[in-house]
Structures are given as structure tokens and as C-alpha cells.
């Protein structure tokens, strides 16, 4: 985006837009950085659950009316993603766009793109809408593995069964005594959007709930969590 357009967007809007990332050299500390530091690095044999933080991403809350073409088309033009339907998500290599409410979506993607994406959105969008940078206030937790679903069954009252929660679905629900937005990103992999201040509680809750399934705090290597047959066999508590 050219400097000129940049300036035009900034001036045409009645909204305060702000580059919130420091130039260089300033360390960022994600909400779960302290857990990553203290976590045991020895992964168990054949883990049933993998848990890791997908830290420091861009998180933009988009508010608008899906029936407003200027909004819906604008979002697609800026992100390359169509506005997802109720409880659904769309994603490409960089960005994921999740339905949150009838007038709210969450856009997550590369951590250094928050301002550029907000500018791009504001350039494209029309009508009554809002874009809110919320990246400092929440983080992404990934939960994977053959027993990931069991961990969620211990944690959330929502039905996470395949028949009710296919890949791509997004649900904001109770987790422990807090809450999270769950997105099923694969057969055995889930992404949880959690608030910064609750992240420690949710992390500890999930670690606790995973104990009986052998927990790895590493991201699984490719294919490690793809074994569907193994998951069904290993899940006698589920139906």
C-alpha cells in the first residue's frame, strides 16, 4: 500500500488507527510465555495430546452487517476470505476468519500485519462497521492429538463430537470456569482463542486434563496426530 493511500485512509476515517508494534529490538511477551519457559521439554512416548501456544498473532475483531455488500465484499477483498456463515470459518495460508456473532468475526494471521490489514480493511469497507485490534488481549492455544477431543470433553460443555463439530466449525463456549472460542482446524486438531488474563488458568486446566493421556508440550511433527483409527480406538470414554 502506498504512503499516499495510507495517509488518505488515516485522514478520511473518524477512527483512531495506531501502529501498536514497536520498530525493532523490543521483546514481546506472549500471555503464555512463562508457561513455555517452565514447561518440561521431555515429551512422553506416543503422546495422546499436544498443547502449544500459537503466540503473537494478529487478532482483529471485525464488526459489521453481513447483508451490507460493502462490508462483506470489502472483507473478502482485503483478506481474500469470504465472510463465513454462522459458526463457520474460512482460512487460507496466512489468515483465518471465524464467525463470532451475527455482526462479529475474528480475523487472525501473521503477527506483524495488524496495521496493514486494518488499513486495508478500512480502505475496502463501507457503511457501519468497526475494526478493533485485540491482538494484545488474546492468544491462540493449539490442542492436538488422538485424545484432544477427550480433553475438550472434560473442559467444555459443548458437544465436540464429529457429528456436531466438523472441521472448520467455530464455537465460543465455556472452558473450565472461563471461556474460549474453539475452532476445529483438523480431524485431531483444535485452535482455542483465549483471553490473555485467563490464559494461564486455561493452560493449567488443559495440562491437568491431559495428564492421563500423555501430554506433549511440543507441536506434533507432521502426521503424528493424523491417525483417525488410532483415535477412535483410544477413546473408550467417548461415543
Amino acid at each position: 500500500m502506498s504512503e499516499a493511500i495510507n495517509k488518505a485512509v488515516l485522514e478520511s476515517t473518524q477512527i483512531a488507527i495506531m501502529e501498536q508494534l514497536p520498530e525493532t529490538g523490543v521483546p514481546a511477551r506472549s500471555p503464555l510465555a512463562h508457561q513455555q519457559q517452565t514447561a518440561s521439554r521431555t515429551a512422553p512416548e506416543n503422546p495422546g495430546v499436544y498443547l502449544w501456544e500459537s503466540a503473537l498473532k494478529t487478532h482483529l475483531a471485525l464488526r459489521g452487517d453481513a447483508n451490507n455488500a460493502d462490508f462483506a465484499n470489502g472483507v473478502e477483498a482485503a483478506t481474500g476470505l469470504a465472510l463465513p456463515e454462522v459458526l463457520q470459518s474460512n482460512h487460507n495460508n496466512e489468515w483465518a476468519l471465524s464467525w463470532i456473532a451475527p455482526d462479529e468475526w475474528l480475523l487472525t494471521g501473521p503477527g506483524d500485519q495488524a496495521l496493514a490489514m486494518e488499513m486495508s480493511l478500512r480502505e475496502q469497507l463501507g457503511g457501519h462497521y468497526a475494526v478493533i485490534n485485540v491482538g494484545g488481549g488474546q492468544t491462540l492455544v493449539r490442542l492436538a492429538g488422538p485424545r484432544a477431543r477427550s480433553v475438550l470433553m472434560k473442559s467444555c460443555p459443548y458437544d465436540v463430537h464429529d457429528r456436531n463439530f466438523p472441521v472448520g466449525k467455530v464455537v465460543n463456549t465455556v472452558l473450565g470456569k472461563s471461556q474460549a472460542t474453539l475452532r476445529r482446524v483438523g480431524d485431531d486438531e483444535w485452535e482455542l482463542v483465549v483471553r490473555r488474563s485467563f490464559a494461564d488458568y486455561i493452560w493449567r486446566w488443559l495440562v491437568d486434563a491431559s495428564q492421563e493421556y500423555r501430554l506433549s508440550l511440543e507441536q506434533p511433527t507432521q502426521g503424528a496426530s493424523k491417525n483417525r483409527a488410532g483415535r477412535l480406538q483410544a477413546s473408550p470414554v467417548e461415543n
Binding site: 454462522v86 459458526l87 456473532a101 451475527p102 460443555p157 459443548y158 463456549t173 465455556v174
Partner: peptide, 11 residues
């Protein structure tokens, strides 16, 4: 009626 689903009272 907005999510189009039944949800638990806790929500």
C-alpha cells in the same frame, strides 16, 4: 436464535 443451536445454560 442467533447461533441456531441449543447451548448449555452456563453460556
Amino acid at each position: 436464535p442467533y447461533c441456531g443451536e441449543h447451548r448449555e445454560e452456563e453460556e
